[in-house]
Amino acid sequence: MTIDVHGRDLRYFLAVAEELHFTRAAERLYVSQPGLSKQIRALERQLGAPLFDRDRHGVRLTPVGAALIPHARAVLAAWADAEAAVRDARSAQDATLVIGMSTSPGRGGLLPAIRSRFTERHPGVRLRLRQFGWEDPTAGLADGASDLAFVWLPLAGAERYRWIVVAAEPRLIALPESHPLAARDRVAFTELLDEPFLALPAAAPELRDHWLALDARAGRPARIGAEIASADETYEALVDGLGICLVATGNAPLLTRGGVVTRPVDGVTPSRLALAWRAGDPRAEVRDYVRAAARVTRLPATDGHLGPTPDTAGDTTPDTARDAARETAPATAPDTAPGR
């Protein structure tokens, strides 16, 4: 004979078994004492045996009641585990990862390729892309507005983050097409030392210095022609002749819209685009997005935008990925700097 017993009935039974007093058990369960007694009698009828002996001296477990206790506890514990598993599954299904960036990483379909691999493991997780201004070189990681972010190295507050390099690209020089050097096929950076440069906001000093190439100036200060805070501002400043700027190869199309050209420049280190996340973030979704990015960047480059990446980018453990990325020479800037 099959007996259908509700979890509520087992909870009521255990409360009485532990209190051996119907009134105290009812108070513990926040139900009426008559209602509790009625549920226990119904359970006894289903089981075909009394669970408690009741008389004027009190309440005592019967042998059947004593035999039921460990099984009732096991059933309720298993159901509690099932409820927790369901909550976790629903939470994962409803989860959203915010991916920060200053401008779109682009680069040969990098984002769609990562999304495809990630959603194989987390089909219910929504990926939301959010753009941040150049004033925040962490693209939302610093204040928690993003969960992961595509950022340019060097990264401000590097000890707070982990990252893998997803693209390494030469830096080009962007010039008004009327500039004397625009007719050249290549330009040496030493020829640009006296030129006015467009600079990132002072709020991002590491990246500002990188895109001014201070490390290639042998101590000579940079001339600042104007400050720029977006790709559009950079383009307008270039067209107006306010200065020139370095730009990552993959972002050159943001500036070469007419009136502006880019040329290879010798004597400066490459730029490096990284996928970064906060150190100590325990979420599986974050780890798996990093794993997906690492796998994608190990594939052969399909165009000039996706440069060589360190072999260690494929290492999916956060600490190893961080250390591997830090072994490379720091260089780069916001996925937005002067076409950066």
Rank of each mutant, 00 (worst) to 15 (best):
T62H: 05
W211T: 10
D319F: 05
P282L: 02
L306A: 03
P338K: 04
E285K: 05
A331H: 04
A158T: 08
V260L: 03
L198D: 06
P201T: 06
E159R: 09
A188L: 10
Q46N: 06
E227G: 10
A158I: 09
P310N: 02
L200K: 06
R186K: 11
P180G: 02
G258N: 04
R162Q: 03
L306W: 00
Y30V: 03
M101V: 11
D53N: 10
E233Q: 15
L29Y: 00
G58F: 02
T269K: 13
P282N: 01
V290A: 07
W211K: 06
T96I: 13
L175V: 07
R186P: 03
H179N: 04
D94K: 08
L110W: 01
L207I: 07
A113C: 00
R115L: 10
A337R: 08
V16Y: 12
S178N: 10
A218Q: 12
T332F: 07
P137W: 02
S104G: 06
A331M: 07
R90F: 04
G225P: 10
A276Q: 00
V75A: 15
E120Y: 06
S104A: 14
R28H: 09
T312S: 15
D194V: 06
R298E: 05
I244E: 06
A80D: 15
D185V: 11
T249L: 15
L212F: 01
A199Y: 11
R283G: 04
V260K: 03
D319H: 04
D311R: 12
D240H: 11
D303S: 10
A174M: 07
D288C: 08
G58K: 03
R24I: 05
I228H: 09
V86N: 02
F197D: 03
L61V: 06
G106A: 14
L148M: 10
H57R: 12
T320I: 12
E19G: 09
T23Y: 09
A174H: 08
A49R: 14
W211A: 12
E27T: 10
A95Y: 01
L61K: 06
A213Y: 02
R322P: 00
P63K: 08
S37N: 13
T96S: 11
E19D: 14
S146W: 02
S271T: 13
M101F: 13
R162H: 08
L212Y: 00
R287H: 14
A293D: 00
D55T: 00
T309W: 01
A293Y: 01
G225C: 07
E206Q: 13
P154N: 09
I99L: 13
E227F: 11
R130L: 14
R298V: 00
F189V: 10
A82Y: 11
L110S: 02
H57K: 08
S37Q: 15
Y289C: 08
Q39Y: 09
G241R: 03
H179P: 07
A331L: 01
G339Q: 04
A329Q: 07
